[in-house]
């Protein structure tokens, strides 16, 4: 099977180049990652990231025939030859198919991806009703592979300012969590022309997500939530009621 792979070694190469490979596959080689491992047996200078080989760790995200995806869950039989493999677009290349994800994780960190709850912890877990738990479906499954963020043109042009679909999906995941008390701060955190509003509903993120999640819907939900909360503030100000510091959320079932 024919492959064309992006190669760059910062110590040896001045510029990245494409290298062609033609390798014989064995019957057990079903996924793209199997083929990459086979190539690495022949040419051990090729650098790739991999770990779980089953679409859970998100290490082997790359641009496969122009579309971001995970090599380990991409079937070889679905790919057109020659298979063109490039690193994730828009992130600095460390070597070959390995990119520097620092910026990606900085954005992830900036949305406070952890539960903020100042109540004293109960003796058991903080309980959640099944309905509240259901709100997290489609959000918590993200594996942070960066396929969506690096497929987003808005991120390509403003990688230092736009949080990107993966980070915003996580921002929303904690906004809707019934146990979280920092919704207002989280919304305020995205009040900036770049961090949230560079999203123009292009939907490349939804197109590439290997976990079939919908970051665009989460971003739209954040935008809507901002409007809803601003309206509530306005009506509260009109009625001269004190504004609740934390929005009232459904109490968990006893």
């Amino acid at each position: 099977m024919k492959f064309s792979i992006y190669r760059y070694d910062p110590d040896a190469d001045r510029k990245p180049y494409m290298k062609e490979y033609d390798i014989a596959l064995q019957e057990s080689d079903q996924m793209l990652l199997d083929a990459l491992v086979r190539i690495k047996e022949l040419d051990d200078t090729l650098s790739i990231r991999k770990s779980c080989r089953e679409g859970i760790c998100g290490s082997d995200a790359m641009n496969i025939n122009g579309k971001n995806g995970l090599a380990c869950i991409t079937k070889l039989s679905d790919l057109k030859e020659p298979v063109v493999l490039r690193p994730l677009p828009g992130l600095p290349v460390i070597r070959d198919l390995v990119v520097d994800m620092t910026q990606f994780f900085e954005h992830y960190n900036s949305v406070m991806p952890y539960l903020i709850n100042n109540d004293p912890p109960p003796e058991t877990e903080r309980l959640q009703s099944p309905a509240d738990r259901k709100k997290l479906d489609g959000l918590y499954e993200c594996i942070l592979c960066a396929a969506c963020t690096t497929a987003c043109p808005s991120f390509w042009w403003n990688p230092d300012k736009f949080v990107g679909p993966a980070g915003l999906l996580q921002a929303y995941r904690f906004m809707v969590d019934s146990r979280d008390q920092a919704e207002a701060e989280r919304l305020q955190n995205l009040e900036d022309p770049y961090r949230l509003y560079r999203c123009h509903n292009i939907m490349n993120c939804v197109d590439v997500c290997p976990k079939k999640l919908n970051p665009q819907a989460a971003i739209a939900a954040i935008k809507e939530l901002k409007i809803v909360r601003a309206r509530e503030k306005k009506t509260a100000a009109k009625q001269k009621k004190p504004i609740p510091l934390h929005p009232v959320k459904d109490k968990p079932d006893a």
Binding site: Y6, P16, R86, L88, P89, N204, D207
Partner: peptide, 14 residues
């Protein structure tokens, strides 16, 4: 000075 893979001609646009 690190390259970025951002050749738009190599990326498939849905």
């Amino acid at each position: 000075r690190r390259p970025k893979n951002l050749n738009l001609l190599t990326i498939r646009f849905p």
